[in-house]
């Protein structure tokens, strides 16, 4: 299986994530689309790791997961806080950045 197929698969997942970020209004769904984009990048790095027979890229996937976990914890805390303030997760309500 050539590595181009993996490139195209991860590009497809990344672009689906971008489309979801652009067309949805729920902040949690947008957050999940960002996770999808991070996973597409992880898949591409694992494919390149196999292409070069080098395990450094897989270690970078670890660091990517670390950053994703930290981002999810802080971001969900922010979303819960916003929901407590304005009782909605609609980003058209959240775009004022003040109350």
């Amino acid at each position: 299986m050539p590595v181009q197929y993996y490139i195209f698969l991860s590009m497809a997942l990344f672009c689906i994530g971008i489309m979801g970020t652009l067309i949805r209004r729920n902040a949690i769904i947008i957050f999940m689309c960002i996770e999808l984009m991070l996973n597409a990048v992880n898949l591409l790095m694992v494919a390149f790791s196999k292409m070069y027979a080098d395990s450094s890229a897989q270690v970078f996937v670890f660091f990517n997961m670390v950053v994703a976990a930290a981002e999810v914890s802080v971001g969900l805390a922010i979303i819960v806080m916003m929901y407590r303030k304005v009782h909605s997760v609609d980003i058209n309500i959240l775009n004022r950045l003040k109350h």
């Binding site: 195209f8 590009m11 067309i23 292409m51």
Partner: peptide, 24 residues
């Protein structure tokens, strides 16, 4: 949004279609 994502996909696909890669 759909058109923007689709165009990004097409651009990267056209750019990477002829990239030289090693076999797995």
């Amino acid at each position: 949004g759909v058109i923007a994502g689709g165009i990004l996909f097409l651009v990267v696909l056209a750019a990477l279609k002829s990239a030289t890669v090693l076999p797995l």
